[in-house]
Simulated assay, not measured.
Amino acid sequence: MHTNLKRSYTRSLAIAASPGTVFDLVSDPAALPRWAPGFARSARPDGDHWIIENDQGEARIVVRSSREHGTVDILSADDPSQGAYSRVLPNGNGSEYQFTLQFPSDAPDDAVTAQLAVVDAELEAVRGLCE
């Protein structure tokens, strides 16, 4: 039995822009405040990591990306098992941006719903910035 599995939720959005354009935006940690201001009101480099600031204070993140595979993972620098996983895929003449978050199995449903609403708004921001 897999009792330590988290609950995963993936959101996806079609964007009328090339995969390269979308990838360039979402893989740039300095751009996080432009499309994910609730997560990162500001972002500054700190060696191989980035320091983001939000309502909870400051946190260190690492952004692991692969242009070849279209993957962008935004992870806690202190605990890389925590974070968000995303992928930019070709979709006709544009792109599909997929974004996955994981929650503890006992996370309250209302907290998950609220966070997914934030993700939906962030995806719309990516679309607006890329199209």
Results as ranks from 00 to 15, higher is better:
3 T>W: 12
3 T>E: 07
4 N>E: 13
5 L>I: 13
6 K>G: 10
6 K>Y: 12
7 R>I: 15
9 Y>D: 01
9 Y>W: 10
12 S>G: 06
12 S>C: 10
13 L>H: 06
14 A>M: 10
15 I>P: 00
15 I>C: 00
15 I>A: 01
17 A>M: 03
17 A>E: 00
19 P>C: 04
21 T>Y: 00
25 L>P: 03
26 V>A: 01
27 S>A: 15
29 P>V: 12
30 A>R: 13
33 P>Q: 05
35 W>C: 02
37 P>A: 00
37 P>F: 00
38 G>V: 09
38 G>M: 06
42 S>Y: 06
43 A>D: 06
47 G>N: 09
48 D>P: 09
49 H>N: 13
50 W>F: 12
51 I>D: 02
52 I>K: 01
56 Q>S: 08
60 R>C: 03
60 R>V: 07
60 R>A: 10
62 V>K: 04
65 S>H: 12
65 S>C: 10
66 S>W: 10
66 S>F: 10
66 S>Q: 06
67 R>A: 14
68 E>V: 14
69 H>C: 04
71 T>Q: 03
75 L>M: 09
77 A>I: 13
77 A>F: 03
77 A>G: 06
78 D>Q: 10
79 D>M: 11
80 P>N: 06
82 Q>Y: 11
83 G>T: 13
83 G>L: 13
84 A>T: 15
84 A>S: 15
84 A>V: 15
86 S>Y: 04
86 S>M: 09
87 R>E: 05
88 V>D: 01
91 N>A: 14
93 N>I: 11
96 E>V: 12
99 F>L: 04
99 F>M: 04
103 F>R: 05
103 F>Y: 15
105 S>W: 13
105 S>L: 13
106 D>V: 14
107 A>D: 08
107 A>L: 12
111 A>V: 15
111 A>G: 07
112 V>R: 00
112 V>W: 00
112 V>T: 03
113 T>D: 02
114 A>P: 07
117 A>M: 04
119 V>F: 01
121 A>P: 04
121 A>W: 03
121 A>E: 07
121 A>M: 08
122 E>M: 12
122 E>W: 05
125 A>T: 11
125 A>S: 14
126 V>R: 03
127 R>Y: 06
129 L>N: 04
129 L>T: 08
131 E>V: 15
